[in-house]
Design a protein around this nucleic acid. Structure first.
Lengths: 336, 336
DNA sequence: CTGAAAGCGCTTACAG
DNA sequence: CTGAAAGCGCTTACAG
């Protein structure tokens, strides 16, 4: 495996005694080429470990075959919640690669949309994938204004038109709450993520829906919100217990908050799940590792990544706007 | 911010009444151009939000200005240890961007080195950054054979010549052990990562060195190894306690294993740090979050990422092979 | 089915 | 200091 000898299709053409055009067609599986010629050329190329020059190809084709994965600049400490990024990146990368695309990573600052110009106008990338970043809505507005091809992870804003992939938050809320109801809980609380998030609103709707189907009242005193961090989860749990000590079940919008809530419950002398059952959300690796192991709602993140890749490419190639909703699943462990 | 109007340097040339050559020189800060002309052209380009076409530039310059971050395919569950990847990627990305390079992410399988050809021979990337991936040595051999530009995170193999950045493992082991000695511990155990890893051997050397400086014996019964996972950490701790119940301090090669070891110690009825003091390694976010908060050795990972980027680019541009060793630091918390 | 030639949008040696 | 022209390595409409 020494240094590359055969550099261009012109080299291959010379060796095969054909024109560059023919080599290009053979290597690109063009229909207008003789079977025999093609196989001969492909064999020579393979033998010499030849790879077509991507840059020249991109210039000629006027596309980069590269997608940018957009995420926040990593200044601060990482939390376990960021494992989500790694997991979805794996899925995206796999999906892109299968379609002949590469994945660039772009770290963006909250209030700067220059990256759109930088990467798109220079032809570096053909489109963007957004997952979580501060001021996502702001960036989405700028992407729309620029008519940039992109897709996002998360629920679609009303009155907008762009590609999305999201989990089934409504059903997630329903499954979690139904499970609590089925185990005989009657005072079931809700600890949400930020209330302005659509995902959170859907999960709440699922919660409400499940309670009503079971003939239970939705009590405002049992509903509160956090910001997904563990400290906010602990604080939320404390607030709930102060207002209503009869709570016997909680549906929490993230595993991290759920684990913090469980700690708080124990500090306050409640047993989990005996006194209070807890269901989380996400099924990060810490959910299974926690003691007691966390009952939670799982979203298939690698699958989500794959869809983000495929549907963005589809949009770039056909203009079809898709909004995909992925199924979620209840994972029963020890806390409920 | 509408769709891009001005597409090429030819457009700018027309507007400025100069040739394409002149525009190119102005935009690239060439010395052989009039100050006045340059400023006029730059102003026009900025006004029209013009970005030079990266693909054409790359083809002309015969370089991609792109570096591949190579990591393992993400099949399995993620663990907190993988947060390391996110953190170092942030540093690398920042370092590359500052030098005008982009970061591509490549997920590789253990036994397949085709990715080297795929990305290098096609001109997609100018070099590779390797952090952790299975069969790293195997990949390094293939990179060397192909004469590919690359840099790795981790200690350098003997008799090889390539760029590396690594933490000061020798001093890390020394600092951890010295701290245990200073707090009066005399039966200090060592739980390493895989013993064939150079990093682990250096940490062991630091441990040994610190013990000897303190006039303490190195006891083979107090030395054991794991694979960085929490289960292996718990097993290692158990083995140590079975062989020698007088242990009053442990230096563990990762935070994950350290936390598992602490759990095990408590199960066996030992108090931490009263009966047994524990020092970990890495200072992942879980170290501070753990109860009790973990005393550990910190490496500046974002800084490491930045150096990986800079030194690889330096190598590509000048051929200079660098082996950088980053300082480490003892972070004292509750477990020792 | 195959080839000669133009074109993708840059950079730069060469000439002025 | 500036411009005309060749070249980077592909793809593809056009002609055969």
């Amino acid at each position: 495996m020494a240094k590359k000898q055969v550099q261009t299709i012109a080299d291959i053409a010379r060796m095969a005694n054909v024109s560059k055009s023919t080599v290009s067609r053979a290597l690109n599986d063009s229909p207008l080429i003789g079977m025999e010629t093609k196989e001969r050329i492909v064999a020579i190329a393979r033998e010499h470990n030849f790879r077509i020059n991507a840059t020249a190809r991109q210039l000629s084709l006027q596309q980069s075959n590269t997608i940018a994965f957009v995420t926040h600049a990593f200044h601060k400490e990482f939390s376990v919640a960021d494992l989500f990024l790694l997991e979805i990146m794996g899925g995206i990368s796999r999906g892109l690669y299968a379609n002949g695309y590469d994945m660039l990573v772009v770290h963006v600052e909250p209030y700067d949309s220059q990256w759109i110009h930088h990467y798109l106008d220079s032809g570096r990338v053909d489109g963007f994938i957004l997952t979580t970043c501060p001021h996502k809505q702001h960036h989405i507005q700028d992407l729309l204004a620029r008519e940039a091809p992109f897709i996002t992870w998360g629920a679609q804003l009303p009155n907008t038109m762009y590609c999305t992939v999201t989990g089934d938050n409504l059903n997630g809320g329903k499954l979690a709450t139904q499970h609590l109801v089925r185990s005989g809980r009657r005072q079931i609380a809700f600890i949400g993520g930020p209330p302005h998030e659509l995902e959170v609103q859907y999960r709440y709707a699922g919660y409400e829906n499940a309670l009503q189907s079971a003939g239970l009242q939705v009590e405002p005193a049992l509903v509160t919100y956090g910001d997904y961090s563990n400290t906010s989860g602990a604080a939320a749990m404390q607030r709930l217990l102060e207002h209503s000590s009869a709570i016997d079940g909680v549906f929490v919008n993230s595993d991290l908050m759920a684990i913090a809530a469980i700690k708080k419950l124990r500090q306050m002398g409640r047993r989990v799940p005996d006194d209070v059952a807890v269901v989380g959300y996400d099924d990060l690796s810490i959910a299974a590792q926690n003691t007691p192991a966390l009952t939670t709602i799982r979203q298939d993140i690698p699958q989500a990544g794959k869809l983000l890749a495929q549907n963005l490419i589809q949009y770039i190639q056909t203009g079809a706007v898709t909004n995909a909703i992925l199924p979620v699943e209840l994972v029963i462990r020890e806390t409920a």
